[in-house]
Amino acid sequence: MSTPQLTRAKEPLFSRLPVISHLKKSVGLQRGMLIVGVVLSGIFLLTSIFAPLLAPYGYSQLSDDSGSFPTQEAPSAKHLLGTTVGGYDVLSRVVWGSQTAVTVIIVSVAMSLFLGVVLGLLSGYFGGWLDRILVVVADAIYAFPTLLLAIVISIVISRGQSSFWGGIFSCAFSITVVFVPQYFRVIRAETIRLKAEPFVESAKVLGASSVRIIGRHIFKNATRTLPLMFTLNASEAILTLAGLGFLGFGIEPTSAAEWGFDLNKALADTSSGIWWTGVFPGVAMVLTVLGLTLVGESINDLNDPRIRGRKRAGRTPVPGTPAGPELPANPAEAGKS
């Protein structure tokens, strides 16, 4: 029997990157959602990178050459989004805030990723008492409300308030502790499944050491879902950070701009009709989380061949078939079966 030769050239690295490969195989609404998500996340990232250029003032700037900023001033030509009760420029705070958010996401997700994956692989592959202890610890962490846990850790690390990096790390650590069990569980479950796969058994039969089996055979196969988890957790990290800031456990306004802190300060303004101090940091947060979630959810749907939408079959003529049979007059009928 002749077998079809699959000599399709390997695609360039660029088109095999997670989001880009997904974009290529998406159609219709799923594609729209993914594009919206990518655009929103892109704006978020670019803003954070170019914050020094985009922001008209510094995040803790209270005055310029023409004197101190007015407090609680409505949006004007000088302060496009107005000023806060403390006299900060809202636009600058929002722009700089994205930088804090990105830093916290990167630090926290990187740490939880590393810890979660390593513990998950070891726990899943070796099992036994190590596995049992780690699972109990993970379950215990799950039992705490996320935010409460983050507050406790934040207090432990930085006694509530601190400098830029101190604040960032306390937020990142607390988010890490919350996220590690998630990564741990996913990787552990995948590892347990993969451990029974014939290709792992075949490596065992060949006499490969456990380190080699984990590193070479399980690791890459178990970490397929990570891009998805990364995007979903990134949005959750932003919300946790904002929650900490809102409750007053974030970063001081003189060390960095932080959306949750600004929202907290804007709380009193709402009753007196001052809307610009609260709306803009809030909108920034919503759009960022929405963008990241859209990317994550789209990747999730596109990874699953059962949910992924496809172009309708039959648009191109059938090669190599006799011209005799014609498609039914009503294409809707043909699609029904």
Binding site: E197, P198, F199, S202, A203, H217, N221
Partner: peptide, 8 residues
């Protein structure tokens, strides 16, 4: 199909 590591 299952006895080969799909990534190698």
């Amino acid at each position: 199909a299952a006895s080969f590591n799909p990534h190698l």
